[in-house]
Nucleic acid binder design. Structure first.
Length: 683
DNA sequence: GCAAGGTC
């Protein structure tokens, strides 16, 4: 007889097995399990792959609406999941006791609960709970000597979360799709508790940008000469509202020398960066390499599967010493380009990382394992790996020191300011070198009372700028800040919004399409809670009550259903209008997305990407076709076409970009088959 | 065909 231990993922099962004693890995029904057998205990340790069970629509009929009858069922489309469930069911038959050892958070509680209830046969009540906050030997052993009762409230809260998200998300998505269908068209549309507010953030920003009225202001810059060194200073008021005021200052100062009035000279400490959690890594990779958060996660996962880095889907910014700094660092020293950096670290007396505040129930921050890559990493993999290694090393570096000098200069009673910023001690920056952003600004040596020759003084008209567009990194940061979505799903949600064509990439970040606006508009009118973060707040509050036992899951869900049905009733009433509105938005978007540029033949129409009705193939045609223009051009049928907005230098027909796979290079071609550039290629 | 949440 043995104790069956249920874990959330293979990596955790392995760690737990190692912590509990000498373990052997066995194959059972096509999946790996671990056995630990000694005089005190006999454990069989099995693992899930995240959720093995999820919610299903009982009717399984996608045209039923609204759908309110849900059931928990195996995640059937994944054959690995089915194998895992079968193996666990087998092992449960001969088990004398059960330990729930999934991550100690809400989703982990649900994962273990479903397995114990559905795969093991109602064993949740009798199972004991291992509670650990990181997968270190010590914590795992501790949690097994102090096993707790299962937390029904937490499991119930988690299960309710699944229900609420499904009921709201699926029904409102079906409502959108139906309204579009009601005017005879089809398109995949969706909305949900996280998609809604995320899209709304972008819509609000877009509105701020469009409604921004630029206000003029003037800046006054003077240049001073100190022993042949010229430096610039700004008038103390950074924005002067009136041109007359600026003019008066210039008139009073022009040709007048300045006197150094005041000097402050301060040192400031720049602590090392904290180690990466997934959000920090995604942001940094976007800012440095312009990688989308989803792509960065995919690369990190690949590196993790090659054992080069630790588990990437973590929110922790901490590096406990139990990960074994020495082993990692000596491993990295075997990789040529890091050996010198590592020896710098090893000369330190003690290795102590700078850590951030955020923690994670199951994992430390992302760190390199020190394993030397066996295969050559691809370009982007190498960049992300290098970033993670250097960030890890930098976290152990010394605090850097910078020196800030601020001077004020008096010119006939008007005050100008100049600042210098230099690095006096590089510290950790050496370790993080290509990725450090520190702009030095030097001033000549100045003393109080120094007389400075006024070299020039100018005023320049500027305009207040609209707020920045969100980009993929900053909208992810906004989601983190507003606490919607999770570390594992935020990147997915953003890419869903792109896939639905609600968001589009544009210069300077991302923009909301007409379709995105139409969806938010109709939701704001009929189901405002789905596009506001209040829904998450209310849900969290109610689920906390469920967890503590002061509210029933059933009544929370019933209330939500009532609110939903109220929204849907008015939605259905206006179905045709909403459909028409979405339709016009979709047409506007596609029309815009397919224009390549002015037609070089008739010079009246626009060359557009169109699809042949008969062959369904895409090609380029002139919008002035009806007016008699016969300009056409073939297009490659595979790959995605990018509009460059540029014209061929040889023939002035539009240039297009073709991308065959994500992350591959864009192939730039002139669409004109008779272009001279092609003739040259063949001769 | 729809959500959000795990993980590979």
């Amino acid at each position: 007889m043995y104790t069956l231990v249920v874990c959330e993922k293979p990596a955790a099962a392995r760690r737990i097995a190692q912590a509990l004693g000498e373990s052997t890995e066995l194959r059972h029904g096509g999946i790996s399990i671990f056995e630990v057998k000694n005089s005190a205990h006999h454990y069989k340790i099995c693992t899930a792959l995240g959720h093995l069970y999820g919610l299903n629509d009982v009717t399984k009929n996608k045209s039923v609406y609204p759908v309110l009858d849900l059931e928990w069922a195996p995640v059937a489309k994944n054959p690995q999941v089915i194998r895992a469930i079968n193996a666990i069911s087998e092992l449960a038959k001969d088990a004398s006791s059960f330990v729930h050892a999934c991550d100690y958070d809400q989703e982990g509680e649900v994962i273990g609960h479903s397995i114990l209830q559905y795969a093991c046969g109602d064993k949740y009540a009798e199972a004991l709970r291992a509670k650990f906050s990181t997968l270190t030997d010590e914590e795992i052993r501790d949690s097994f000597t102090n096993l707790a009762k299962p937390n029904w409230g937490l499991a119930e809260a988690g299960r309710s979360r699944h229900m609420l998200d499904f009921i709201y998300g699926v029904n409102l998505s079906r409502a959108l799709i139906r309204s579009f269908k009601s005017i005879g068209r089809y398109r995949n549309l969706s909305i949900g508790r996280v998609q809604g507010p995320t899209l709304a953030f972008a819509v609000n920003r877009e509105m701020e940008i469009r409604l921004h009225i630029p206000d003029p202001y003037w800046i006054i810059t003077a240049e001073f000469d100190k022993d042949g060194q010229i430096f610039s200073a700004q008038y103390e008021k950074p924005k002067v509202d009136k041109p007359a005021e600026a003019k008066a200052i210039i008139d009073a100062c022009v040709g007048r020398n300045g006197t150094v009035n005041n000097i402050s000279d301060k040192e400031s400490m720049l602590p090392p960066p904290v180690p990466f959690n997934i959000g920090d890594l995604q942001r940094e990779a976007y800012n440095l390499f312009k990688l989308s958060p989803g792509y960065t996660l995919a690369i990190a996962e690949k590196l993790y599967l090659q054992a080069l880095i630790s588990y990437p889907r973590t929110s922790s910014q901490k590096l406990p010493s139990s990960i074994g700094y020495d082993k990692i660092i000596s491993g990295l020293s075997k990789i040529g380009k890091y050996s010198q950096l590592v020896s710098m670290l090893l000369s330190k007396e003690k290795l102590v990382p700078n850590e951030g505040r955020m923690t994670d129930p199951a994992h430390p921050a992302i760190y390199p394992t020190g394993v030397v890559p066996r295969h050559k990493l691809s370009g982007l993999e190498l960049r992300v790996y290098d970033l993670i290694v250097r960030r890890f090393l930098a976290a152990f570096g010394d605090t850097a020191v910078s020196r800030h000098i601020n001077v004020t200069i008096d010119v006939s009673g008007y005050i100008f300011k100049a600042g210098g910023m230099t690095l006096t001690y590089e510290g950790w920056m050496v370790l993080y070198k290509p990725y450090v952003r520190f702009n030095q600004r030097k001033l000549p040596k100045l003393h109080k009372g120094d007389l400075l020759r006024n070299w020039s003084i100018e005023m320049e008209e500027k305009f207040t700028q609209p707020p920045y567009r969100y980009n993929q990194a900053s909208i992810l940061a906004k989601m983190e800040q507003e606490k919607i979505g999770t570390k594992a799903t935020r990147a997915d949600i953003i890419s869903t919004l792109f896939k639905r064509n609600y968001l589009a990439a544009c210069k300077g970040g991302l923009e909301v399409t007409d379709l995105g606006f139409a969806v938010i508009d109709s939701m704001r009118e009929f189901a405002p809670s789905i596009v506001s973060t209040n829904m998450t707040r209310l849900m969290e509050e109610q689920l906390a009550n469920v967890e503590q036992g002061s509210a029933h899951s059933m009544s929370v869900i019933e209330q939500a259903v009532d609110r939903l049905l109220e929204s849907l009733a008015s939605f259905i009433e206006k179905e045709d209008d909403i459909g028409a509105q979405i339709n016009s938005a979709v047409s506007a978007d596609t029309a815009q997305a397919s224009v390549l540029g002015q037609c070089p033949l008739c010079k009246k129409g626009q060359l557009c990407i169109v699809r042949s009705r008969t062959t369904q193939k895409r090609f380029v045609g002139c919008s002035n076709y009806v007016g008699g223009c016969k300009a056409t051009a073939p297009l490659p049928q595979k790959g995605s076409i990018r509009i460059t907005g540029k014209a061929c230098l040889e023939c002035s027909w539009p240039l297009i970009g073709v991308v065959f796979a994500r992350g591959t290079k864009q192939w730039r071609i002139c669409i004109n088959t008779h272009c001279i550039s092609k003739k040259r290629d063949t001769t």
